[in-house]
């Protein structure tokens, strides 16, 4: 199976954000791979290896990102995890919106002709959650979003995708080629079944670490450069950021003298009981 995975670098969510006018101040930001994209890479690797036989490769994983040259570091980390090659489309974050990203990935899909496109369900910075859906629309491919499990079925021609919904787990069958976005639980020990690795195999929970062997092997893997112009994507940003603000600081609470007063305030002022 040939899989295209998208990867975005995002500011470390643990780091304090700083503002510069109407935008985030990106100087001094610690960039890291969006965690849902890391999960997408992990699921792509699980789909294309035989974990019962020393993780022998059984397919190809291509990781693509849009961003400045520095994103090579994050792409290199996915190659160290085990992805086969990467493509970096030169762009700056200010000049991108979900439509441009989805159109760019569409062009890469037309070039690479993968069986599956795997994406994180959203990026932790913008939380837009729409690139996967747009991409499926542009390609006219079936989609399954927020996957918590993936199982290869019909002799590799389709996937059974589990999705956690309010009422339980919904299972969708999508024929390949398809677009799947992944959620947190896709990296549970037995969330991905590729029909090659023994069904009883249990992975360690979470995305794999880059092993030292993987890090050294990544040195020899390629990160191909591309650009919006080379791919023929119109770079007109249509989604405009109106403003960026920190959430308002929490107001101080009040002390109440008695349970009666508390109940009264909850009833009359907060109107929650």
């Amino acid at each position: 199976m040939k899989i295209l995975v998208t990867a975005k670098r995002v500011p470390d969510p643990e780091q304090k954000v700083k503002f510069k006018g109407n935008t985030l101040d990106q100087s001094g930001v610690n960039w890291q791979l969006n965690q849902f994209d890391e999960y997408a890479v992990e699921s792509a690797l699980r789909l294309t290896e035989n974990a019962s036989s020393g993780n022998a490769r059984n397919g190809e994983v291509i990781v693509v990102s849009l961003g400045p040259k520095d994103v090579q570091q994050q792409l290199r980390s996915t190659l160290a995890m085990g992805a086969d090659r990467a493509i970096l489309v030169d762009a700056s974050d200010e000049n991108l919106d979900s439509e441009i990203v989805a159109r760019t990935v569409q062009k890469l899909v037309e070039q690479e002709r993968p069986d599956l496109v795997l994406l994180g369900k959203l990026a932790a910075d913008s939380e837009a959650n729409d690139v996967g859906q747009r991409l499926a629309g542009y390609l006219g491919w079936p989609q399954a979003t927020f996957a918590c499990s993936i199982e290869v079925t019909d002799g590799g021609k389709a996937l059974l995708v589990g999705r956690e919904v309010d009422a339980g787990v919904e299972t969708k069958k999508v024929t390949l080629p398809a677009v799947v976005t992944v959620d947190l639980r896709i990296v549970a020990p037995q969330a991905v079944k590729n029909g090659v690795t023994a069904a009883t195999h249990a992975y360690a929970d979470g995305p794999r670490y880059a092993s030292l062997k993987g890090i050294m092997a990544a040195k020899k893997k390629t990160i191909a450069d591309s650009s919006l112009a080379a791919l023929g994507v119109a770079a007109t940003v249509r989604a405009k950021v109106a403003s960026v603000d920190a959430p308002p600081a929490r107001k101080a609470g009040v002390k109440v003298a008695s349970v009666e007063e508390l109940v009264q305030k909850l009833h009359n002022e907060a109107k929650v009981i």
Binding site: R76, S77, Y209, L212, A218
Partner: peptide, 17 residues
């Protein structure tokens, strides 16, 4: 080198977990 940076990240992940 980038390899040193990746190695440091791997050890940090191991340390955290």
């Amino acid at each position: 080198t980038p390899e040193h940076k990746l190695l440091r990240q791997t050890v940090r992940d191991l340390v955290r977990d």
